[in-house]
Simulated assay, not measured.
Amino acid sequence: MRFDSLEIFLKSGTDALAKGPVAIIFAEDLIEVDTSVRHHLSLGFKSLILFGPETMTLPPAVELKIHRVTYDTRAPNMLTNAVNALIKAAPDIWMYYCYNAEYLFYPFCENRTIGDMLTFHTEERRFGMLTYVVDLYAGDLDEAPNAVSLEDAHLDKSGYYALGRSSTDGPKERQLDFFGGLRWRFEEHMPAARRRIDRIAIFKSQIGLELREDHTFNMEEYNTFSCPWHHNITAAIGSFRTAKALKANAGSAFDIHTFRWHNSVEFEWHSQQLLDLGLMEPGQWF
């Protein structure tokens, strides 16, 4: 079903928010929108809301399965405006958000649904889930000048690290800033505020909850990587977003001839590879 604006969706499309988990995808451009939608539909989300320009085209069979909202995904604060409006409209359901050319993976996602995982996560009294945004990039930029290739996708197998997160009151409990991937290797082209690779992309909405522009929430427990007594599940988002930006921006496009280096490996499109590399963990979920 199509909606001409967020306002119209909030008036007449809220059936899509009746039951979670709900996937929310923001199409910043027209690259791999179809595959992003198909991938997330395959994970078992109860509904999927796609925000993007009117010019998007999807196969009819795919479009019938989603709720499509015409939206300016290049506008300032577009992410927080939309997500926070959905939180306010539908408290107490699980939500997930990402951009086009991004693909969610969680432990055992090949044979367990997103609902299975979130049932367990809820039983552990967790209402947010840390997701690492793992940069994907084409191995051959001559063949894929926009840096996007699902058939020749690569990622960094090492070079990831974390630093303690602080506030004016001191270190924040169970919160870390994570770095690595292309944002680390090409940090001279990345604004300091955009170098982190952590995102609380999976969360349970509630009254008063608000997403901030830095991908954290106004309720600090949502921003923690685990509960106090043991490790919890984490997930990963394979993302071409940084690679696309580095090859699209004039300040970096001509300086980068390849993203591959000695720590590049082919992406296998399987959760086990991400588990083996330590880019997500199952916690107590086996």
Rank of each mutant, 00 (worst) to 15 (best):
D15R: 14
L41M: 10
D29E: 10
V33H: 11
I24Y: 00
A27T: 04
S36R: 10
H40E: 10
L17V: 11
P21M: 08
T14H: 01
E32L: 10
I49H: 03
S47G: 07
F45A: 09
H39F: 04
G13L: 06
T14M: 06
I25Q: 05
S12T: 13
I49Q: 08
G20I: 09
L41K: 14
D29A: 10
I49M: 05
H39K: 15
A18L: 03
G13Y: 01
K11F: 02
H40R: 12
H40Q: 12
D34Q: 14
S12W: 00
G44Y: 03
G44P: 10
A27F: 06
I49Y: 00
K19D: 07
F26A: 02
G13T: 10
K11L: 09
I31R: 13
I49R: 07
I31V: 08
L10P: 11
I31W: 01
L43W: 04
F51N: 03
V33T: 11
T35S: 15
L30N: 13
V33K: 10
V33C: 14
I49V: 14
S36C: 15
L17T: 15
T14I: 13
L17S: 09
L43P: 14
V22D: 05
S42D: 12
D29L: 10
L50D: 03
D34R: 14
H39Q: 13
S42A: 14
L50T: 08
A16T: 11
F26Y: 13
E32V: 00
G20F: 07
K11E: 15
S12K: 14
L41G: 11
E28N: 09
G13S: 09
I31S: 08
S47R: 10
A27Q: 12
D15V: 05
S36N: 11
H39S: 14
D15W: 00
L48A: 03
A27D: 08
I24D: 01
H39P: 13
P21T: 10
S42V: 00
S47Y: 05
V22N: 08
A16C: 05
L30P: 00
G44C: 09
T14K: 15
F26E: 04
K19I: 11
K11N: 14
D29S: 12
A27Y: 09
R38N: 14
I49P: 08
K11I: 01
F45D: 04
A16R: 12
K11M: 08
L17P: 15
L43R: 15
D34T: 15
G13C: 05
P21S: 06
L50V: 07
F51A: 01
A16I: 09
H40C: 05
G44R: 14
S42Q: 06
T14R: 15
T35D: 13
D29F: 09
H40V: 06
L10D: 07
D34W: 00
H40M: 04
H39V: 06
A16Q: 08
D29K: 11
E32Q: 12
R38G: 04
L50R: 06
L48S: 00
E28V: 07
I25K: 03
L41D: 03
L30S: 12
P21V: 05
A16K: 11
I25E: 01
P21E: 05
E28W: 02
G20E: 06
L30E: 15
K46W: 00
V22Y: 03
T35P: 11
I31T: 10
V37F: 01
F51T: 02
S12C: 02
L10M: 08
T14Q: 14
A23E: 05
I24R: 04
G20K: 10
K46D: 07
R38A: 13
A18W: 01
